[in-house]
């Protein structure tokens, strides 16, 4: 194993370019650690340790966006009081990532490039129209998060590119909700994740983002259309056809396709379709669905 220790963003990009994509960037290392004992083959490669690049860490508020750095952790966001006021789902989701130890090490950019369909951070970023800012020695590129994933663990990042920032537009929201259905109340991997927002501002509208029900985290256009059209929905079952068009849940070691579809329908029905009316005034932006309180 070799570890590259760049001292600046510039140096990191040069090392990455020089390794011909062989070096794997590490931020918090939390995803890597999980499989470390089992994946012997991953021990024999080059790692690019980003931890020395202080400039990638801070959160920045501009007049029209919140910009997370490539090394911003969940904990950095939890501690930012403005996030709680303006983009609360970021904090709600961050608090449901692993344990507090993981929240203080794990990064938003790492959550994006790990590419897990069960990620907790990605759904809320996508529901806020986040844009991924990639950089290489050749220059910068911006990709909207909703178009970032191309398949299971496949994404629009070249091996020589680093995620240096995540830009989240600032908009007033009339509805914001994040729901994580886990196998227990803490330290769980999502069986279904849902992030839903509505903004009346220009370029806004409904965003319904689902996790753990498709090879990638993705928006649900059919469900969004029902919400845009203010369609009358009388039961969770009436949402099943739209869910079937939007996502493709499977049976796996954590849950079943049937459960995922039904739970998604019920949560959308009770928490979104029925919750539309009270959404604006509600301060309860998210819940663990094992939390019935």
């Amino acid at each position: 194993m070799s570890v590259l220790l760049p001292g600046s963003r510039r140096e990191a990009l040069e090392l990455l370019a020089r390794s011909n994509g062989a070096a794997m960037p590490i931020a918090g290392g939390t995803d890597l650690l999980v499989h470390w004992p089992q994946r012997q083959e991953e021990h024999d490669r080059a790692y690019l340790d980003l931890s020395g690049i202080a400039e990638l860490r801070p959160v920045e508020w501009t007049p029209d966006a919140l910009v997370l750095g490539g090394l911003t952790t969940y904990w950095d966001v939890i501690r930012d009081a403005r996030v709680g006021r303006e983009l609360p789902l970021l904090a709600v989701a961050a608090r449901q990532v692993g344990s507090i130890q993981i929240q203080t090490r794990g990064t938003w950019a790492g959550n994006i490039v790990n590419g897990s369909p069960a990620a907790d951070g990605v759904p809320v970023l996508m529901a806020y129209d986040a844009v991924v800012v990639l950089e290489s020695v050749a220059g910068r590129e911006e990709v909207p998060l909703e178009r970032f994933y191309e398949g299971y663990k496949q994404m629009r990042r070249r091996p020589d590119q680093l995620v240096v920032a995540i830009r989240i537009p600032r908009r007033p929201y009339t509805f914001q909700r994040f729901v994580k259905i886990g196998s227990r109340r803490a330290q769980a991997i999502a069986k279904v994740g849902l992030a839903v927002t509505h903004s009346a501002a220009g370029g806004g509208g409904w965003r319904v983002v689902a996790a753990s029900v498709a090879p990638t985290i993705r928006r649900c256009p059919s469900i969004e259309r029902l919400l845009e059209e203010q369609a009358a929905v009388h039961s969770p079952e009436e949402l099943l056809p739209a869910i079937a068009r939007d996502v493709t849940p499977i049976d796996d070691i954590r849950s079943t396709a049937e459960y995922r579809k039904l739970a998604m329908a019920r949560v959308l029905f009770y928490d979104v379709f029925r919750g539309r009316e009270q959404g604006a005034g509600s301060t309860d932006h998210g819940r663990r669905m094992t939390d019935n309180g």
């Binding site: 739970a263 949560v267 669905m289 094992t290 019935n292």
Partner: peptide, 11 residues
């Protein structure tokens, strides 16, 4: 117990 009928989660 509390049972959430949306998710059938039991607490």
């Amino acid at each position: 117990v509390e049972v959430d009928l949306r998710t059938c989660a039991v607490r």
